[in-house]
Design a protein around this nucleic acid. Structure first.
Lengths: 338, 338
DNA sequence: GAGGCGGAGGCAATCGGTTGACTGGAACTG
DNA sequence: CAGTTCCAGTCAACCGATTGCCTCCGCCTC
C-alpha cells in the first residue's frame, strides 16, 4: 500500500514500460488515449497494472517541455488580501484541480506583457486576470500576450475573453429591496470614475432605483477600500441629510459608510439603511450586520478556468456569464425609513 | 524596443548562442555563473548582448526536467478566505518572486503525502504548509514527503522545518495593555483544544496576565470562525458577568465576541473591553474599532520562503522565528473598566 | 503463391537546458 | 625544443514524455 514515497525519485514512464514489457510509446499513447494506437486487451491491462503498481504519474516538466503545455494557470490579482477575490481564487482552484491544472498566483504589475512572457517560459499556460485597476486599452492589449488572458469580473468592450457575474440582477435586487422598504431618497457610493466595474454596477442600480421612483444621488469614493468608504460616508452624511438609504457597490465601501455613520452618531438602519453588493463572513459581524446581495464568486472563478481551458483548446467562446442567481441577504442594516 | 512578443515562441538558448557565435554550453554556464567556466571578456559581452537583444529567459520546464528543480513553491492552506493567511501569502509571494520562484496555491487535503508527490512531478520544489488543523503526528510524518515541507505559523515539537512569529511578545503586549487600563478580571477565548496554535497563545497570555495580578478565566470556542466567537461570546456574557475584559487569540473570534456584546446590549468598551491578536483592515471598521496586536504576517511569509530555500540548498536551519516586534494598535474596543 | 492489408507495437527524433569530459592552441618551463 | 599548464571553449549525453514513421507478422484475396 504505502509505496515508499520517500526521497526516491518518482517512477518514470520508462520504468512502467519495462515493467509491462512494452515500449514507452505504447504507454504514452495508451495513457493519453491516442486513437491511432492499437493494443491487445492483455497488453493494455499489463500496462495499467504497472501504472498502478508503481503509482506512476507523468512528469509534468517533461510533458511541458515537449508539448509546451504546462498544466498551470496563473491567477493575477491587484492584491491578495481582498476577501472577494479570495473566494474567486478558491473557485478557480477547485475547478483547476478537477481538470488537472494548478493555480499559480501573481500580482498585477505595470508590464503585464512581460509577466505573460515569464509565465510562458515557466509552463504557465494562461492568465486569469482580476482587478479593475487597468485601463480598457491595457486590457485589450493583452489580446496578444505571450499566453492567453481571461479577464475576470469585468466586461471590456472589444474583448471576448472574460468571465463575469450578472451584476444587473444583483443591483435590481438591491434597488427593489429598498423600494419595498419604502425608501425614495437614495445615495449610491460610486467608485472612482476610471473603474468600469463599479461604474456598471452603479449605473444599473441607478437605472432601476430611478425606475422604482426613487431620487438617486451619488458620492464618489476615491478607491474601493474601507477608508475610502469612510470618507465618502462622511461626505454623504454632511451633504445629503435627507437621504434614507445608501447603496454601495462593494462590501468594504459599505463597511466604511457604516463606520462613518457610527462616528456621526447616525443610527443604522433607523436613520440610514445600508445595502451592499457582495457577501462575506465579515458582513455578519458588523453592527448592525450588513444587508447584502450575495454573488456567486466561487462559480465565477470556476467559470474563468473553464473559459481559459476552452481558449487553450482552440475555441473562442463568448464571454462567460455566470448565471447562478444573486441572492438578497437581509440582515440588520436595512429597514423602513423613519 | 518592443521585440514583437506575440504568439511567437520565446527565444531559446540555442538562438542566443548562435547570435553570439558560441556554443550553448557557454551561454548556460555563463548565465548560471558556473565558476569552472572561463570566457574572455569580449565573448561574455557578446553573449550578454545577445541575451538582452532577444530578451531571452530560460525555459523553466526544460531546466526543471534536467535539474529536477522547478522554481516553484506551493503554499498550502486550509481555506483561501482567511484574511490572515492572505497576508502571509502576500509576503511569501513577494519574497519568492525576488528569488525567481513562483507560488502555486493548494488546499489542505487528507493525504498530504500524495499532494507532495503530485507537486514533485509538477516541478514544485517544496511546500509551505499553513493551518493548524493537522495533528502533530501528521505534521511530523511530512518530514519525509516527496518534497520538503515548511510548516508556517506553528511550532511542532520534533520538527525543525517551521517558520513562526513570536506570539509570546504579542500576548504580553495585550496583557500589559489590559493591566495598564486597570483590568483585573479577564476572560480569554480559547480555541479548540487540539489547535496548538491558539493553545500556545492562550497559555502565554494567561501566564502574563496572571503575573500581572489578574484573574483569568476561559471560554472555549469550537473553531476559529466568527460564528464560534459569537457563540463563545454569548456563553461568556451569561457566565462571567463580572469580567471586564476579553482577550481573543485571533481576529475573527474577537469580531464574534463583539457581535455577541452588541446583541446582548453590553457596551464596549464601557462594560467590556476586547482585545485581539492579529490586525487587519477589518479591525478598523467594526464598531467600536478593535484594539489589536499587529503581528508581522507578511514577514512570516517571507521567512517561510527563506527557510524553504535554505532547506532546498541543503541546509537544515533552526526554526525561523520572525523577530519583527509585534505592535499594539489601540482603537476603541478597550478602555478602563467601569 | 504473390501481393495486399490491417493489427500490434517499436524506433528515434525532439522539446530546451545542464554538465562532465574533452580539445586546440598559446604560453610558459626546464 | 619537448613537455606541461592554462585558457577558452566545444561535444555530446542526459532529463522524461510525445509523436511521426516504420516494421513485423498473420491472414485474406485473386
Amino acid at each position: 500500500m504505502t509505496t515508499d514515497r520517500r526521497l526516491a525519485k518518482p517512477p518514470t514512464m520508462r520504468q512502467v514500460a519495462q515493467h509491462a514489457g512494452v515500449d514507452v510509446s505504447v504507454v504514452s499513447r495508451l495513457l493519453s488515449g491516442d486513437p491511432r494506437l492499437s493494443v491487445s486487451e492483455a497488453t493494455k491491462q499489463r500496462v495499467l497494472a504497472a501504472v498502478r503498481l508503481l503509482d506512476y504519474r507523468p512528469n509534468l516538466a517533461a510533458r511541458a517541455l515537449r508539448t509546451s503545455r504546462g498544466g498551470m494557470a496563473a491567477f493575477v490579482v491587484p492584491e491578495f488580501t481582498s476577501p472577494v477575490y479570495s473566494r474567486v481564487i478558491a473557485g478557480a482552484h477547485r475547478r483547476a484541480t478537477e481538470e488537472g491544472y494548478s493555480i499559480v498566483v501573481g500580482e498585477v504589475t505595470e508590464d503585464l506583457g512581460r509577466l505573460a512572457q515569464d509565465y510562458r517560459v515557466r509552463g504557465v499556460d494562461g492568465m486569469l486576470l482580476a482587478g479593475a485597476t487597468l485601463s480598457d486599452e491595457a486590457v485589450r492589449a493583452l489580446g496578444d500576450a505571450a499566453v492567453p488572458v481571461v479577464v475576470v469580473n469585468r466586461l471590456v468592450p472589444g474583448t471576448r475573453r472574460t468571465a463575469v457575474v450578472d451584476y444587473t440582477g444583483a443591483t435590481e435586487l438591491a434597488a427593489d429591496h429598498l423600494r419595498d422598504l419604502g425608501h425614495r431618497d437614495v445615495v449610491v457610493v460610486a467608485g472612482p470614475r476610471h473603474l468600469d466595474t463599479t461604474r456598471d454596477r452603479v449605473q444599473a442600480f441607478t437605472r432601476r432605483a430611478t425606475a422604482n421612483g426613487a431620487r438617486v444621488r451619488q458620492v464618489t469614493a476615491r478607491d474601493l477600500s474601507g477608508d475610502a468608504g469612510l470618507a465618502a460616508g462622511q461626505r454623504l452624511l454632511s451633504r445629503n441629510r435627507d437621504a434614507t438609504a445608501v447603496f454601495a457597490p462593494t462590501l468594504m465601501l459599505a463597511v466604511g459608510v457604516l463606520a462613518a455613520a457610527h462616528r456621526a452618531g447616525v443610527s443604522v438602519p433607523d436613520e440610514l439603511s445600508i445595502i451592499a453588493l457582495h457577501d462575506a463572513e465579515l458582513a455578519k459581524f458588523t453592527w448592525p450586520p450588513l444587508t447584502t446581495v450575495s454573488l456567486p464568486m466561487t462559480e465565477l472563478g470556476a467559470a474563468a478556468v473553464d473559459h481559459l481551458l476552452a481558449v487553450l483548446s482552440g475555441a473562442d467562446p463568448e464571454p462567460s456569464i455566470v448565471t447562478t442567481p444573486p441572492e438578497l441577504v437581509v440582515r440588520g442594516s436595512t429597514g423602513p425609513p423613519r
